[in-house]
Amino acid sequence: MIPAAFDYKRAGSAEEAISLVGEYGEDAKFLAGGHSLLPLMKLRLAQPAVLIDIGRLSDLSYIRDAGDHIAIGALTRHMDIEQSPLLGQHVPLLAHAASHVGDPQVRHRGTIGGSIAHADPASDLPATTLALGATYIVQGPTGTREIPAAEFYLGFLESALAADEIVTEIRVPKMNGAGWNFQKFNRRAQDWAIVGVAAWRRGNESGIGLVNMGSTPILAVSVSAAIASGAAIDDAAKLAATDAEPQADLNASIEYRTHLAQVLVRRALTAAS
């Protein structure tokens, strides 16, 4: 539980963070809330030579009404998302999903930007923002670009983010009164989901994000297509794993995980309808 030796730099701004990463290259890692990175370092599964602490970039911690969407700064903590009245009003699914992340300590330290950058398929916020059709704003040495959530996740802990890019903002469309539901199936309250479902529905329109159903967060497009074409929820939910590639682990076989996804998607859509 003792990490390998590393250097520590604190960035005063996003620009400084980017230039520091440019300076140290491959060996450097951003440190936000540290709640994904530090556990890996303690197990010596990650051994970055330099940590660039962006945890104090308070100008990247905000939740703003931006018209058709809510703009969330990447350094916003899970607890602030959970408790935000603005999100509660316009994107209640995200606020609620944030309340299911880990335990209170984790939610006070962990950041939405860190969660998205880490691209863990078992994390709650990547799949939820994916279901909501969010866009991520990232900044690099040559400027800023927008990456739709649907194009961001490339593989297990792998994303479209370059090593010298920083996530600065998450833009989440307002839900405009859509019905929604979040299902997190786990064995202990503080654990990652064995399977999770973030779903919203407005008439025949829907978005369904699956947690821990593959090497990336999964958008269950087949289910949404079935709903769009008027299928009953029970039938649509049977397609829950069609777009997924579930893996087996100690908690779930592929068969069980597939079954869980079907049950939880059915429950989520029923509650959201």
Partner: peptide
């Protein structure tokens, strides 16, 4: 304590070895 067929303990961390917490 879950072992694989090679005799390795697969769940030696508190993230994987499920000691229930107060909330559970």
């Amino acid at each position: 304590a879950s072992y694989d067929e090679n005799g390795n303990l697969r769940n030696g961390s508190l993230a994987e070895y499920l000691v229930p917490a107060a909330s559970d």
